[in-house]
Amino acid sequence: MAVLDKMEAQLRPVETPMVPYPAKYITQASGEKLVVHQLSRDDVPHLLKAIQPLTTVEKDFYDVVACRVVSELVGWLRYRVKDEYCLLGTVNGEIVGMVNGRMLTEKIGMSYHTLAIRQGLRLGAQLFAAKMEYHMDFLKQDEVWVVAESPNGFKRWMIEYELEPRFEQWHELGGVPTYVLTRKLWEKHKAAKCGGRRPVPEELMAVAKQMILPSTYGQIPGYRREA
């Protein structure tokens, strides 16, 4: 194992302790359970394998989102992003989507991305809600800064949560206009948007932790993961 030399130690961000996100499950229309749980840094290399195939899918801006998620996760893995977290969605142990973000300050959350890998069950919306839940209800922050990189995202977050435009504030993802989820908006929309039960039964949690890589992707016709 490489030695952590002084130079490397200087490069690493000073990390703020963050309350962990308690795992939850949401019963889907199919009767299956979506389990949302927080990943640790060690899980990143495995998760990257689930995301990488999407980095070339132009439709619905999957390429933009997947590429940036990969770089955000690698930045976290290699200690170049401060106070980042990642929540994973699994169904029957298979990875179906993820969300990530970080604490900008103690009071302000910086939402990064929402990536729905499995389509058709509105999983992205449920995962986004879990992310906002983490910022507002567990990290007890005052607000979360959000941007949308696809029309779908704009519709689901900006319009459906009535996010407050605050274009003068620059979001870390670049020049895309910043919108803000305030505590007031969260309290207004939480009931309709944020589902889930806790705790996750042990057996269900064990299955979720298998984090099985998807073998096919609806976004990539003909794709089949090599065994």
Partner: peptide, 21 residues
């Protein structure tokens, strides 16, 4: 659509309104 919704999940479940808005 090759998926059968579960009647309880889309009507009675506590999360029914989240997944079947």
């Amino acid at each position: 659509i090759q998926l059968v919704p579960n009647l309880e999940a889309i009507t009675e479940d506590e999360d029914a309104l989240t997944i079947n808005p």
